[in-house]
Write a protein that binds this DNA or RNA. Structure first.
Length: 561
RNA sequence: GCACCCGUAGCUCAGCUGGAUAGAGCGUUGGCUUGCGGAGCCAAAGGUCGUAGGUUCGAAUCCUGUCGGGUGUACCA
C-alpha cells in the first residue's frame, strides 16, 4: 500500500505540480479493485475540468509509474480510480503478514486505567476499563511504544472513612486482632466483608447525623495515619491490613482476567502531598484562586465550570489528588504520551483539571490524552446476590458469562474469558455497551468463541496435513486471492487501531477475515487438492494472523477447543 | 438553565479523516448435507441513517435548529 501510495503521489505531482493535493488512497470493495482514490473528483473542482477526464490522465500516468506492480486500473462512477494490484505484489505482503507498523516507535507511553478504590468493590466499569486499557497498552507496545501501565486508586478520602467507620462498628472498636475472625481468611470473603462495611458506613452517613460526624472525624484520622506514617496504632493497623486485603483482591482479579500486570500503583495517599503542594504553588501564581474558604480553579473563564481543589477544611479533593498524580507520572516517566482511560462521566471534570494544569505546564497537557468510555449494561437485568446497593459488579458479568457458557455446554475458562473480552471490545469506545451473556458465548456469529473456533479449525487442518510441504504461491486463483487480499489488510488495521486508540477495528477485521476464510474453505479443497502446498501455506498464515490479532485483544487462541 | 456524549434493519453493532447500490451478526424464510471440525456456505425479506434545514458536484459522516435518551454542573469520587 505504501508503495502504491507513493506512486500515486508521484503521478499527481508530475501532472499537476502547482497543486498541493493529498494522494488519498483507500481500500475499496473487492468488486471494484483493491484500492481506490477519489483525487480526480477533488481535482476537478480546482482545475475546472471533468473528473473523468482527469481520471483518465492520472490512470495513464500511474500505469507508467507503477508498471508491473499493478494489474489493472479502471475508472468508475463519477471519476473514481480503482486499482487492482498484481498477484505477485499481493503475494509479497504475505511475507510480513503479522508485521506491525511501528507508529509509536521511540515513544514512552504511560497508560492509566482500571483505577479501583481500596475498601470498595469492583464494578463493571472497572472490568471494562481494565480490559480496554490492557488492549490499548498491548496495541501500543506492539506498534513500537515503550508502554508503562499504571493504576490509581483512592486509599484516602470520604469513601475510605465510610468503610473504616463500618469496619470499626463490626469490630466493636479499634481491635485489629479481631479482624481475621470478622473478615475470614480468604481473599473473597475479605473483599465481601469490606464492601459490606462500606455499605454500612455509607448508609449511616446518609441517614444518621451523629454517624456522619464520626465519619468526618475518621476521614481526618486516615489522613493523619499517612501524615505521621503511623503503622503502630490500633487504628492504623486496621487501616493498613484492610488496604492490603483490597490490593490482594485486585491483583487476583487482574490475574483471573489474564491482563498484563501493572507496573506501578499510585495510591491517592501518595499523590496527595504532591497535589496539595502544586496547587498551593500555583495558587500563589494565580492559576488557582480562593473562594469561600476553598481553593478553586475558575473554569468559567475557559467555558468550563469551576471546581474545588482544596476544600474549606484544608483537605484536598479528587482534583488536587489528580494534579498530584499527573505531576508524579511526569516525574517518574517524562512520557511522550499519557493516556488516561476512564468512564465518560468525568470528561467535564477532566477538562477542568487539564485546563488548570495547562496554565502552568502546557507541555504536560499537550501530551495527555483522556479516553472516555460508556457504561456497561447487561441484558436480562442483574442477579442481585445477597447484597444491598445497586450497580452492576464485575463479578455479576463474569458470573453471567460462566453460567451462559455452562448452559451452552462450554465450561472452558479460556472460552468464557474470550467471550467477555470480545463482547466488551468489539464496540467502539465511547458509547454504552449492552452485554448479552448468551450471545457472547455463542459459537455462531460475531463472538470471541467463534474466532477461537475459527482459529482451532484452521490449526486442525494443518495438524491433519502434518508432514506435508507448504509453499508460498507464485500465482493465485480467485478464491485464494480474496483470502490473501483480506490478510494483506491486517497491518493497516493494526495501524488504524493504534493511531485511533480504538481496538474494535481489530475485532471487526478479524471477524471479516474469518468470514472470508470460511467462504474460501467452503468452495476450495485444501488437503488433497493439486494446490495443496500453496493452500496449506495460506491456511497457516491465516491462522497466524488470527492468533496474532486475538493476542492483541488479550484473547488466547488455543489449537483445540 | 448551561455543557458534553449518544440516536443507523425487530435486537446487538460496524460504517463517522464527506464519495460509488448504507454493511455484519442474532432473529425470520428458503436452499446446500456420505462434510479437509456444517460451530459452515448460498440466498431472500427487513433501513426516508431521530427530525428539519444548511454547506458541497456529492452528507449516515461536516454546520445549525429541533425532538428523544444519558451524564456532568463548588467543597463526593
Amino acid at each position: 500500500m505504501e508503495q502504491l501510495h507513493a506512486q500515486l503521489a508521484k503521478a499527481i505531482t508530475e501532472l499537476y505540480p502547482s497543486l498541493d493535493i493529498k494522494a488519498e488512497l483507500s481500500r475499496t470493495d473487492e468488486q471494484f479493485g483493491d484500492y481506490a482514490t477519489n483525487v480526480a473528483l477533488q481535482l476537478a473542482g480546482r482545475l475546472g475540468r471533468s473528473p473523468r477526464e482527469i481520471a483518465t490522465e492520472l490512470t495513464n500516468k500511474l500505469s507508467d509509474i507503477a508498471g508491473d506492480t499493478v494489474k489493472d486500473i479502471t475508472i468508475a462512477g463519477p471519476g473514481f480510480i480503482n486499482i487492482r494490484v498484481s498477484d505477485e505484489q499481493l503475494i509479497t505482503t504475505l511475507k510480513n503478514a503479522t508485521q506491525k507498523p511501528q507508529v509509536y516507535s521511540g515513544q514512552k507511553v504511560v497508560t492509566e486505567y482500571s483505577d479501583p478504590n481500596p475498601f470498595k468493590v469492583l464494578h463493571v466499569g472497572h472490568l471494562y476499563t481494565t480490559l480496554v486499557g490492557d488492549v490499548i497498552s498491548r496495541i501500543i507496545a506492539a506498534t513500537g511504544g515503550d508502554v508503562h501501565r499504571v493504576n490509581f486508586g483512592g486509599d484516602v478520602g470520604l469513601h475510605v472513612a465510610k468503610s473504616m467507620w463500618g469496619i470499626l462498628q463490626e469490630l466493636g472498636g479499634e481491635h485489629p486482632d479481631k479482624l481475621e475472625a470478622a473478615a475470614g481468611d480468604d481473599l473473597h470473603s475479605r473483599s465481601k466483608w469490606l464492601s459490606s462495611c462500606y455499605i454500612q458506613g455509607n448508609t449511616a452517613y446518609e441517614a444518621d447525623e451523629a454517624a456522619k460526624a464520626e465519619i468526618v472525624a475518621v476521614n481526618k484520622k486516615v489522613y493523619e495515619v499517612h501524615a505521621q506514617n503511623d503503622h503502630e496504632s490500633a487504628f492504623a493497623r486496621i487501616y493498613w491490613t484492610c488496604r492490603e486485603w483490597s490490593y490482594d483482591y485486585f491483583k487476583a482479579f487482574y490475574n483471573d482476567l489474564e491482563v498484563v500486570p501493572f507496573e506501578k500503583y499510585y495510591p491517592e495517599s501518595v499523590t496527595t502531598p504532591t497535589g496539595i503542594q502544586t496547587v498551593q504553588e500555583q495558587l500563589n501564581n494565580g492559576v488557582y484562586e480562593e473562594s469561600n474558604g476553598a481553593v478553586v480553579f475558575n473554569g468559567e473563564k475557559f467555558g468550563l465550570h469551576t471546581r474545588v481543589f482544596i476544600n474549606s477544611q484544608g483537605l484536598p479533593t479528587y482534583e488536587a489528588k489528580d494534579v498530584g498524580l499527573i505531576m508524579q507520572k511526569w516525574r517518574d516517566y517524562a512520557f511522550d504520551l499519557s493516556i488516561i482511560i476512564t468512564g465518560n462521566d468525568i470528561v467535564e471534570y477532566m477538562k477542568v483539571v487539564q485546563k488548570s494544569i495547562e496554565q502552568f505546564m502546557p507541555e504536560l497537557t499537550k501530551r495527555s490524552h483522556h479516553l472516555a468510555h460508556g457504561n456497561v449494561k447487561m441484558t436480562g437485568g442483574i442477579k442481585m446476590s445477597s447484597r444491598k446497593g445497586n450497580g452492576l459488579l464485575a463479578v455479576d458479568v463474569l458470573d453471567a458469562a460462566m453460567e451462559a457458557a455452562r448452559e451452552a455446554g462450554l465450561d472452558n475458562r479460556q472460552t468464557t474469558l474470550a467471550a467477555v473480552k470480545y463482547a466488551l471490545l468489539r464496540s467502539r469506545i465511547g458509547g454504552d455497551i449492552i452485554y448479552d451473556p448468551k450471545e457472547s458465548v455463542s459459537l455462531e456469529g460475531n463472538s470471541g468463541p467463534y474466532l477461537q473456533y475459527a482459529h482451532a479449525r484452521a490449526r486442525s487442518i494443518l495438524a491433519k496435513a502434518e508432514g506435508e510441504t507448504l509453499s508460498m504461491p507464485d500465482g493465485l486463483d480467485a478464491g485464494e486471492r480474496s483470502l490473501v487480499r483480506k490478510m494483506s489488510e491486517y497491518p493497516e488495521i493494526v495501524e488504524r487501531a493504534a493511531k485511533e486508540l480504538l481496538p474494535h477495528h481489530l475485532c471487526t477485521y478479524l471477524y471479516e477475515l474469518a468470514q472470508v476464510f470460511n467462504r474460501f474453505y467452503e468452495h476450495n479443497r485444501v488437503v488433497g487438492d493439486e494446490r495443496q502446498a500453496v493452500r496449506l501455506q495460506l491456511v497457516a498464515l491465516y491462522a497466524d494472523v488470527l492468533r496474532d490479532g486475538l493476542g492483541l485483544l488479550g484473547i488466547e487462541a488455543p489449537d483445540r477447543l
